[in-house]
Design a protein around this nucleic acid. Sequence first.
DNA 1: GTACTTGTTGAACG
DNA 2: TCGTTCAACAAGTA
Length: 298
Amino acid sequence: MPELPEVENLRRGLNSRIKGQIVKKVSVFAPKLVSGKGNVRHASGAKTRLFIRAFKGEKIQDIERRAKNLIFHFQSGKILLVHLKMSGQFVYQERHKNVVEGGHPIQLSEIKLPNKHTRVIFELNKGVLYYNDTRMFGYLLYYPTIGTLIRENHFHKLGLEPFDPHFTLKYLAEELKKKTGKIKTVLMGQGIVTGLGNIYCDEVCFAANIRPTRRANSLKPNEIKKLHLAIQHILKRAIEMGGSSIATYRLADGSRGNYAREHRVYGKDGKPCVICGEDLKKIIVNNRSTVYCASCQV
DNA sequence: GTACTTGTTGAACG
DNA sequence: TCGTTCAACAAGTA
């Protein structure tokens, strides 16, 4: 699953390879992905045709990231907004050269392009950019201007980026005070700080010795301090690991992400806690599997 | 075949 | 009106 670090590294990889290129042709094989966001989307022929037409001949100026969204800026001011959700993936192939991929990991044997999960193809002047998505939860949306995107999307509901200077201990404490929901649910909501998915929520709660079921407004000052530190430390570390796995990904070596090795609770239910040795417990919070140590996390 | 997994969000709920 | 809870989306894996 693409986590924030993977999206960030994908952004860097794409910027270094496709910035400045011209879109020659767009092909859409899954119309619903370009027809709107949300869980009730219907394929629209008109929207698909508009999407295909919109980017033809456009020059890619820059690719930006906001939370886990990728924002492609074109020289004309047009915008392509992409969210990979759970299984989205970009693979860029330059003729006779390496392949750069990011998002959902792929096996070496799967590098046949296009393949059955290829949903959108952008033919550029130097190579081809494939958007693959097995589960088709992701989306690619066209906006005529950045202003349209900001008005029509819910970016205003997103919290701060974890490394934004405004994401301070004071800010976190004040925001958590307003929330009565479980701390894991609140962190996953993206409304206070972005980038924490199911995996990192568990890891962050473990690092801060806070049980994921604790009510957000019940956290004590020293717990919030540990939480704030854990969020920045763990995401920073994950970005470094993502940087070491995805940005350097080559067809020849096939190296995979390394950050999974550092998981201390996620996916380890029943195994001994690395701190106290007690068996980790698994529960459901926010409709998501949640692993924690009943001894270390209070 | 069945259960489970994922990020986000619209709908339901209180 | 608003905050919180919850199911839906798709398809692969165990």
